[in-house]
Simulated scan of single mutants.
Amino acid sequence: MQTLDKTPEQLRQDTPLTIAGRSFQSRLMTGTGKYQTFEQMRQSIAASGCEIVTVAVRRVQTNAPGHEGLAEALDWQKLWMLPNTAGCQTAEEAIRVARLGREMAKLLGQEDNNFVKLEVIPDTRYLLPDPIGTLQAATQLVKEGFAVLPYINADPLLAKHLEEAGCATVMPLGSPIGSGQGIRNAANIQIIIENATVPVVVDAGIGTPSEAAQAMEMGADALLINTAIAQAQNPMAMASAMGLATNAGRLAFLAGRIPVKDYASASSPLTGMVRS
């Protein structure tokens, strides 16, 4: 059945998000950082409806403040762990931390988890990812059997190179991490979406549910949102709002928006009108 023939209920059922052969019903991924308490984190993750949760391997391994016991704080029978290489400034560091992340996932019961969110960020002020280091690390990690989800600038050529290297997704930033500036790279993200044959996950910069919906309306396959939820005045309410916005944006994309016109178009037809 074509999308045009489907009822709203059928559209809501949608096809699952599939990454590296694994299927997920939710198209929202969330993080574990910046929450005030573990309980607040648990309740917010549950409210979001997400199934994939990213965990900073280095911060868990070193028991960084706010990360002591984090890996054990969530139910990994229900959630899929996405270890990330946050804090790594070089490809070599990221490769080493990715290997630790895979072992951490295995220790927590996810024996077949080869996922890694790849971050190579030498820039400590703007937190912009290094495109060369990211491609180098991704190429090696794919060879080692990882399902690599690379965090990148909204660069269509880099996205294509990473896809050709065997990455499971590409994850362009909407705007700098934690900035809440929204989708500042819409034109480039649209190009990435139109040309990708792997899922496109918009990651970083989303601050409001309307921005989450915007990214999904553009045709993104999924979103990763952390700061906008964790640092909201009411994280649980914001998590729920982000989940609803992700679904609404996806449904709007499947429904197909009207064309933008330079002129007005009456909602009611002029034919058949009663005239005096």
Rank of each mutant, 00 (worst) to 15 (best):
A204T: 14
R184I: 11
R125T: 12
T124I: 13
I183C: 04
R58K: 15
P269R: 06
G272N: 13
G101A: 00
M1Q: 11
K6F: 02
Q110G: 05
A138T: 05
L70I: 11
G66P: 03
E68Y: 04
G66E: 02
T246N: 11
T7H: 03
V274R: 15
R27C: 02
V148C: 01
I132Y: 07
I121M: 04
D262T: 15
Q61H: 11
R257D: 08
P172K: 09
H67K: 01
A105E: 06
Q25H: 09
D262Q: 14
M41G: 00
V60Q: 02
Q61M: 15
Q231Y: 00
R22Y: 00
E163M: 10
I132P: 02
G205S: 02
F115W: 15
M273F: 12
P235E: 04
L107H: 14
G21Q: 06
V201H: 05
R102C: 11
I206N: 00
Q25M: 03
Q61P: 02
A91Q: 02
S26L: 08
I183T: 00
L157V: 14
I193R: 06
A215P: 03
P131E: 09
T7A: 04
E103L: 12
G174K: 05
M1F: 10
A71R: 13
T134Q: 10
Q231H: 01
N84V: 10
W76A: 01
K106I: 11
A213C: 04
G174N: 08
Q140K: 13
M273W: 13
E211I: 04
S48C: 10
Q2R: 13
I191M: 13
I152K: 07
I206W: 06
A222T: 05
G21A: 03
L79P: 01
A212I: 01
A264S: 11
E163R: 03
L223C: 04
D112Q: 12
A245R: 03
E217S: 08
Y151D: 13
H161Q: 15
D221H: 15
T271Y: 10
A215L: 07
R12N: 03
Q214N: 08
S240M: 12
S23Q: 14
Q10S: 12
L118C: 08
A20W: 08
Q25N: 11
H67E: 13
L251H: 11
S23G: 01
Q2S: 15
L141S: 03
E111Q: 14
L118T: 05
V170H: 09
A168M: 01
G207N: 08
L244I: 14
P156Y: 00
M1A: 14
I183F: 06
L79E: 00
L224R: 07
E119W: 09
T208V: 10
R58S: 15
V120A: 02
F115A: 14
V202T: 04
L135S: 01
T271H: 04
N63C: 13
L82Q: 09
E39H: 06
G133F: 03
R58P: 00
M81Y: 00
A196T: 03
